[in-house]
Design a protein around this nucleic acid. Structure first.
Lengths: 336, 336
DNA sequence: CAGCGTAATCGAAGCGCTTCGATATTTCCC
DNA sequence: GGGAAATATCGAAGCGCTTCGATTACGCTG
């Protein structure tokens, strides 16, 4: 293993000079810098991560805690994880992958061992038990998702309330009068993950503001459960012409079922999804959707974490405004 | 931050004794052990990861390199990543997430900085350029996937050749005489990821052994492309009654298309998928499938990595035998 | 030209841990 | 009961880096 001392010898300088070349914390003459950099290249030097962490009290590692098996749609998690990893490298940070099932113990371990400089938490529950530990250990952290009490915390999330409202507006603008929200599975609501409830709130508020008849139903996302949910909705409200789907797993079943029941999309029935663009694009017909800005959330989380590490703690809640893209699955309600 | 010295003071022993309690590398009296453990608990001590890495030359971190955006089915990647992370914790290791687009530079960085003790690489190509770097830096590594030359390497993968053959056998046993393999997208073959080609080889060999007429077609996995592929197959070989699907994205479209064209599954046409069990189970009808043992591969990779770290290097290639589960999408060919 | 500020570099301390003798204590066997 | 072997513990060195204060060299200014 190449050490800083060898680089120093090769370049004819002292180890501290090499360190300063690398960290740019003191001025170095152009000439010296060049010699040192040449030596680094020639020897293929990489600073020893542990030694650096020990001396500088910074590991250059961000810990990312993801749900192990989740009700959340897997591609979204994956996209966030990849965005975090990619963005982290822009700041010369690496990413440590933790599973949520390590729970508070995981947070303690990371905070206590100095393994990571900051944490990014996904799948945040309304009353998440990791939060008190974060406070107590004063670990720099960013939450992806919104807990009930955000005091002193830095959070990023899609504005699901506005999302629900935006979907209603779109359908209302097209002339739909009876609409339905096909929500997440019961487990998601019970675990008190806020996003599903916030969507529903926005949906119902806006529906009543605009005088629409609106129903909300939970849905497991399997073919069978989607069929059941759809049947019940159409039985209770046969005039329903607009659907908003939050559970991405239910999208494909829903489209199949509507087709089977002779309802053409978008001619007879409009469908608006809340899902990643990728999913909306590979459906047939391509779906009008509010996209889940996974990449943006991941990148934002990293930037927030870094600014906490540089600049001190400025708690902030970032709600990303929904972006509804009109595609082929929604249209004006038939004149009849 | 709590240090080992504070723990030692609290327990009335020397720091080295605390270290030996933790590492179990020397015998410690029962009494001392208890006092030290009490002190650790009382103070909430966690060894400083950097200091430990520096002194012991072991970071207790495994680096996992995953494809950034891939042709591989995302849930499989995610399941492997989670299995790796979970299994790693069993060995007191953490997992560092790297993206494949860091390429050879990433491997060099990790090898050079001592950030990780070993690497696990996913999405291995036949002639993967990360492999020479692995050799050159003699980094302990496990590949998930099979390169062309496995000399000196440790690899894990599903036995895709046997998988192709097993699917053929199943359909042949049911009396099907004309079958088709709907493969991965062109990009997968062009990138020389071996698994798709191996499946095809096994498929064709066994088909000819058993005297079946067999065609293989690449497929992008979108609704449109699947429709095109299916149409061509049925045009060229109208008697095709058995389908094997490797591209998971094509499964749902295929089922819809078969239904639309009036071919009942499994009464008229049998479908066998190569996909995670989860996907097979949530389709309708539930699919006869060879499962992709994502979790097993992840766990196995970690165990191999650990045994390399403990016991020295014993290169090995593990091909997991395919497990075909019969469900509702395959049946004997109609008597007619 | 004395005195001073600035730029560039060095040397050494120290981060928290592991590990290698060395030492102290106990056990055991002839 | 004395010495060897085994057991339990300690002290100190050192892992590779960062960082602080000190030092040197140099160009200014009054």
């Amino acid at each position: 293993m190449v050490t800083i001392a060898e680089v120093a010898r090769q370049a004819g300088v002292s180890p501290s000079t090499v360190s300063y070349v690398l960290s740019r914390k003191r001025s170095i003459s152009e000439d010296t810098r060049r010699r040192v950099e040449a030596a680094i290249d020639a020897l293929g030097y990489h600073p020893h991560a542990g030694a650096r962490a020990l001396a500088s009290n910074r590991s250059n590692i961000l810990a990312l805690m993801v749900p192990l098996r989740s009700d959340m749609y897997v591609p979204v998690i994956m996209e966030i994880a990849m965005a975090v990893t990619t963005e982290a490298r822009e700041f010369d940070q690496d990413v440590l992958l933790l599973t949520k099932d390590e729970g508070t113990g995981g947070v303690r371990r990371i905070a206590g061992s100095g393994l990571a400089d900051a944490m990014i938490l996904m799948d945040v529950e309304l009353d998440d038990d990791r939060i008190p530990v974060l406070r107590e250990t004063s670990t720099p952290a960013v939450l992806i998702g919104l807990p009930a009490d955000t005091a002193g915390l830095t959070c990023v999330d899609l504005d699901f309330d506005a999302t629900g409202a935006a979907c209603v507006d779109h359908l209302a603008d097209l002339g739909h009068r009876e609409i339905a929200l096909i929500g997440e599975s019961e487990g998601v609501y019970r675990r008190h993950t806020g996003f599903a409830a916030r969507t529903m709130t926005g949906f119902q508020r806006r529906a009543s503001e605009r005088g629409l008849r609106a129903v909300h139903r939970m849905c497991e996302g399997t073919y069978e459960s989607t069929a059941g949910v759809l049947a019940r909705i159409l039985e209770e409200r046969p005039g329903t012409t607009g659907f908003i789907v939050q559970n991405e797993a239910a999208i494909t079943p829903l489209l199949s079922l509507l087709r089977l029941s002779g309802r053409a999309v978008p001619e007879d029935t409009s469908v608006v999804a809340i899902c990643p663009d990728q999913v909306a694009l590979q459906s047939s017909p391509r779906l009008t959707s509010v996209s889940i800005p996974a990449e943006e959330m991941g990148r934002h989380a990293v930037r927030q974490a870094m600014s906490q590490l540089e600049g001190g703690h400025h708690p902030s809640v970032t709600l990303i405004p929904p972006l509804l893209t009109v595609r082929e699955s929604s249209a004006a309600v038939p004149a009849s």
